[in-house]
């Protein structure tokens, strides 16, 4: 790809709460190239979630430009944003956000349903994605039959299944114990080696270590933006992937 995958220029987000204007983002410029792994850090209220929502095409900036994969998206309507979320990126949330009473396989199939794929193709690709996160054997388990780590793996499979260029993860290890967290980060690093760009929002410095670039937000602006040699995530040997605690 010629340009950067993500290019934001002077974006701002202002919420109106009654009389008061809240400047969630004041002025942020950022460029992320394909294959990068970035951790966005900052205290609560620093604007990192707002930035993530905008970069994840869940929200639009009040001002400024956002080019995703070379396309200006800051002014797109809700339908076009939905299409981008479906085709170009995948989400991973802190609380997994899987559909309850729905099997892992069907959860992973969900984005493909909106992409309009046939049932056969959906199932094949969902199985492939589940195998990739090490849950090939648990396709028919429901979220309430799985551990937190396994549920997050299903969520990652769901993010992967559309073969996106970018994965946006919002505190993906926030609800997991440290050992499982390392497993998840190892999985992300492996995806990164396969060329997927990772945008990780976290407030844990431990987790940020695994990223190659750390952006620290404060009061709606970028406070620092540094590259680093990422620590390789090595899961503890007894933590067998897919095993319930």
């Amino acid at each position: 790809m010629a340009g950067p995958l993500i290019e934001v220029e002077h974006i701002a987000k202002i919420y109106r709460m009654g009389e008061v204007e809240v400047h969630a983002l004041r002025d942020v410029s950022l460029a992320i190239v394909e294959g990068e792994s970035i951790a966005v850090m900052g205290p609560s209220g620093s604007g990192k979630s707002t930035l993530m929502n905008i970069l994840g095409c869940l929200d639009r900036p009040s001002r400024g430009n956002y080019r995703l994969a070379g396309r200006e998206v800051s002014q797109l309507d809700r339908n076009a944003l939905a299409r981008l979320r479906n085709r170009t990126l995948g989400f991973v949330f802190q609380n997994f956000n899987l559909l309850a009473r729905t099997s892992a396989l069907e959860n992973v199939e969900l984005p493909l349903l909106y992409a309009g794929l046939s049932g056969r193709e959906r199932r094949a690709r969902a199985r492939e994605a589940l195998a990739r996160v090490g849950l090939g054997e648990r396709a028919h388990h429901h979220p309430n039959q799985m551990s937190g780590g396994q549920q997050q793996r299903v969520a990652i499979a769901r993010a992967l299944v559309t073969r996106p260029q970018l994965i946006v993860a919002d505190e993906p290890t926030g609800n997991l114990d440290s050992r499982t967290s390392v497993e998840i980060m190892a999985l992300f690093q492996e995806l990164g080696r396969n060329g997927i760009t990772l945008l990780l929002v976290t407030h844990e410095a431990d987790i940020a270590r695994y990223a190659a670039r750390v952006v620290v937000m404060r009061d709606g602006r970028v406070q620092s933006d540094q590259r680093q040699q990422p620590v390789e995530a090595v899961p503890a040997p007894e933590a067998e992937a897919g095993e319930a605690p």
Binding site: A82, R87, L99, L110, P111, Y114, A115
Partner: peptide, 16 residues
């Protein structure tokens, strides 16, 4: 509501 949010996040358009 939450289910709707999840569906929208993975690409459901308003008309879906």
């Amino acid at each position: 509501t939450r289910e709707i949010g999840i569906r929208m996040a993975v690409g459901a358009r308003p008309r879906d």
